[in-house]
Design a protein around this nucleic acid. Structure first.
Lengths: 384, 384
DNA sequence: GGCGTTTTGTTGTACGAATGAACTATTACC
DNA sequence: GGTAATAGTTCATTCGTACAACAAAACGCC
C-alpha cells in the first residue's frame, strides 16, 4: 500500500524541525519490510511524488540514510473559493508550498452564480495554464462555498449570503475535465489547520456573517450522509432570546454572529473587524472598550453554551476558533472555557482544549488544495 | 477480502423475505470474480461461518444456485449488561438467533461494582460453559454499562445511576481469556437496531433516568476520541429552566428525563411506565390524561429542540427513539417532528425521519452480541 | 428424447504485492 | 584495517486475485 508509505513520509515532515524519514524509517513506521518499502518508494520517486535528498551522515555507525521528502513543484492541488467579499484560487504542492495565489476582492451578496463562477473559472484556468507550462501537473480542485453543499452530488442547495440556491457549481466553472469537487467553506478551512500541530480530531468553528463549523476526526472531515453537519449557528442558546433569521429564537448567531457582535459593540454591521479589535484594546473603563468588551463577553458566553452542546454531542474535545473568532480569541477564551468547563460532562476526564486557528487568510483555499493532494497521496497509483 | 463476501451474504439476509445469495450473487455484488468468491466461500463454509442450503431450481435456465446463509449455532457473540434494575447475558449466533438469554432483576443503585460484576461474570461463565458443551464457539463479549466508558481503555469513568466511578469492569468480570470489551449501554442498544431495516446512519436516543444517545454512521458506531458523544441529556433547552444535577440549568433531562416526565404527569418517580401510558390512553379531558399528556407534550417540545441541535450538529437525519421513548413515541412524535421541522436547517432538503426503536427488551444485550459477531465477520481469517 | 442455451461453480495458469533471507553499500569505532 | 551497525537491494517464495477455459445442472425447443 503506497498510501502508508507516503503518509509516513509526509506526516513526519509536518513538524518542521524533524529530520525527513528514510526508507528504513518508513518500513519501521508501517510494519512493511524494507524490501517492500524500497520498491514502492522507487515508484513514488519515479512518479515525482517523493524526492530523495542527499544522504547525510547521522553521526552513528552504518550507511547514511537517504532522506525522503514530498516533491516540490511537481503535482499541485487547487483551492477555489467564492465568498461574500472575495473570490480566489490557490495552488499548493505536496510540500505545502503555495505555488500560485490569486484572490480578488468583490461584493458577491445577491450575485449571479453563473457570472461569478465563470469569472472564478477563468482565474483558475489561467493558473492551470501557467502551472502546466512550468511542467507541474494539476491533480484537481476543490471549490469552497459559504452554504449548504451536498457532499455526494456537489450541488449547492442554498447560500444565503450569496443569494444563491440550487446551483451546480462545477459546470458553471467550465474547467473542462479537471476534476472539481465542492464543499462548504468552513469545512475546507478546517482542513487547513492540519498543516499545523493540531490534534487529529477537532471541532472547527468559524465566525463570520453566519457561523460555520466542521468536525474533523482522525485528520479527515466527518461527512455523514450529505455532510450537512456543524450548523452550530442555530443551536439554542436561549429560547427567550432575539428572533433569528432562521425562524427560531435565541440561536447562537444572534449572540455570536459577526453582525450581532458588532451591533452590540455599538459599531456598524459593515465595520471592519479591526475597529472592534481597536475598541477592545482600549484599557478598560473607557466607554468604547466597555461596550465592545461586554459584546464579546456575551458572545463568549453564548459560544460557551453552544460549543458545550457541540462537544457533548460529538465527543470531540478540541475546539479551534476560526474566522473572526481567531482574532477575538484573546477576549473570547475565558468565557468560552468557563462555559465548556461547566457544561461539558466529560470535561473532568478530558478537559476541552480551545485554541485559535493558525492557517492564516483564506484558509478554505489552503484546505481545499490540501484535500486534493490528500487524494493523490491516498491513491498514488493513478500518478505512478 | 473475506469480509466483503460475508457482508454480501449476510446483508441480504437482513430482509427476511429475500432469497439467500449464491456464490455468483456475491461475485456480482462485490466485483470479485466467481473463482475468487468460490475459494473464499469454501473457506468460510469449512470454518462453519457460512452454511450451504440445498440448491433450489430457480425456474430459469442454468444450473441451480447454492444458497448461502450465515451458519446457525456455530459461533456466537455474548452481550452482557449491568443496568439500574437488572443485569443479564444474551448470546446470538451469526443468523441472529438468540441461543442463550438470562436476565436477572435487581436494584443496583449505589451498588458494589466488584460484587455485581462478579455475579454477572458467573452468569456469563455459566452460559459460555453450556454453549461450549454444545460445540459452539464463543467469539467474545461486550459489556454494556449506563455510564461514561472510555472506548479506548474500556474503563468506566462514572455511572451516576449505579454509583460507580473509576471501575475497570473487564477484570472484575473474571472471564479469563474471553475477549471482553466495554461500551455505553445506549450505544450498544443502538446497534441492535441494525438488525431491522433502519437506514445506515441514524441517531439513537434512549430515554431513561438519564438520556443516552448514540451516533451510528454507515452501520457503525461513531466513536471519535474516547466515544464520549451523544450526551444529549444536557443540551440546553432553556437556560432559565429548572436546575439540573449536572450543575447547569434547563438541560433536556429536566424536561424529558423519565423522572421529570413522571413527576410532571403527577406520578411517582418510581412508577412503572405502564402507569404513564395508561394515563395517556384516557380519552382527553380527563384530569389524569390531561396532566400526563401535557407532561409528554412538554417533553416532546424539549426533545424537538434538543434533537434539532443534535441533527444540525451531526448532519444525521434519522432519529430512532429508544428506551421509554419507544413506548411514548405515539404521543411524542408530533411535537418532536414539529420542533425538528422548524429548527433543522437542512430539513427543507432532507426531512428528518423520526421513528420508534424496534429491537425489543434489553436491546443493549442484543447490540453487544451483534457487535462481537460483526468483528468476527470483519476478520474471519482468525476463525478459518 | 437429444441437443443447444443458460447459469453456476471449479480448475489451472498468470500476475502483482508483499515476505524473508541473503547480499551489497557505507559509515563509525577500536 | 577489521568489525559492528545501519541502509538499501536482489531473489526465490507465498498469497490473493484475475482471467480463461471447463464441468455441472438446469430449461426449452424441435
Amino acid at each position: 500500500m503506497a498510501r502508508a508509505i507516503y503518509d509516513a513520509a509526509t506526516e513526519v515532515s509536518g513538524s518542521p524541525d524533524a529530520v525527513p524519514p528514510s526508507r528504513a524509517d518508513v518500513a519501521a513506521a508501517t510494519g512493511l519490510t524494507r524490501a517492500t518499502v524500497s520498491t514502492l518508494v522507487d515508484h513514488l520517486v519515479a512518479a515525482r511524488l517523493v524526492t530523495e535528498l542527499e544522504p547525510v551522515s547521522s553521526q552513528r555507525a552504518g550507511r547514511p540514510a537517504v532522506p525522503l521528502v514530498p516533491a516540490r513543484r511537481t503535482v499541485v492541488g487547487l483551492g477555489l473559493e467564492v465568498n461574500v467579499d472575495y473570490l480566489g484560487v490557490r495552488a499548493l504542492d505536496l510540500a505545502g508550498d503555495v505555488v500560485a495565489d490569486h484572490v480578488e476582492a468583490g461584493t458577491f451578496h445577491d450575485s449571479d452564480p453563473a457570472a461569478v463562477l465563470a469569472r472564478l473559472g477563468l482565474l483558475a484556468a489561467d493558473v492551470v495554464t501557467r502551472l502546466e507550462a512550468d511542467g507541474l501537473r494539476v491533480a484537481g480542485a476543490r471549490l469552497a462555498l459559504p452554504g449548504l453543499v451536498d457532499a455526494r452530488t456537489g450541488e449547492l442547495e442554498v447560500a444565503p449570503n450569496l443569494g444563491w440556491s440550487s446551483v451546480h457549481p462545477v459546470e458553471l466553472l467550465g474547467l473542462g475535465d479537471l476534476p472539481v469537487r465542492v464543499a462548504n467553506e468552513a469545512k475546507l478551512a478546517a482542513l487547513a489547520e492540519l498543516a499545523g500541530d493540531v490534534p487529529p480530531s477537532f471541532l472547527y468553528v468559524s465566525g463570520d456573517v453566519g457561523i460555520g463549523a466542521a468536525i474533523v476526526v482522525d485528520r479527515a472531515l466527518f461527512l455523514a450522509e450529505r455532510g450537512w453537519n456543524g450548523e452550530v449557528g442555530h443551536v439554542v442558546v436561549d429560547p427567550a432570546g432575539p428572533r433569528c433569521s432562521c425562524g427560531a429564537s435565541g440561536c447562537l448567531e444572534q449572540y455570536a454572529g459577526k453582525e450581532a457582535i458588532l451591533r452590540a459593540a455599538g459599531l456598524a454591521t459593515e465595520a471592519p473587524l479591526d475597529d472592534l479589535v481597536a475598541a477592545l484594546a482600549v484599557p478598560d473603563g473607557g466607554t468604547p472598550g466597555g461596550r465592545a468588551r461586554s459584546a464579546v463577553d456575551r458572545a463568549g458566553q453564548a459560544l460557551g453554551s453552544a460549543l458545550a452542546d457541540f462537544v457533548n454531542l460529538t465527543g470531540v474535545s478540541t475546539v479551534v476558533l476560526g474566522g473572526v473568532y481567531t482574532e477575538l480569541e484573546p477576549w473570547l477564551r475565558a468565557e468560552i472555557t468557563a462555559g465548556l468547563g461547566a457544561r461539558v460532562l466529560a470535561a473532568p476526564f478530558a478537559p476541552v482544549d480551545v485554541r485559535a486557528a493558525r492557517a492564516g487568510q483564506h484558509a478554505a483555499l489552503t484546505g481545499g488544495a490540501r484535500e486534493v493532494l490528500r487524494e493523490v497521496v491516498a491513491d498514488p497509483a493513478a500518478w505512478v
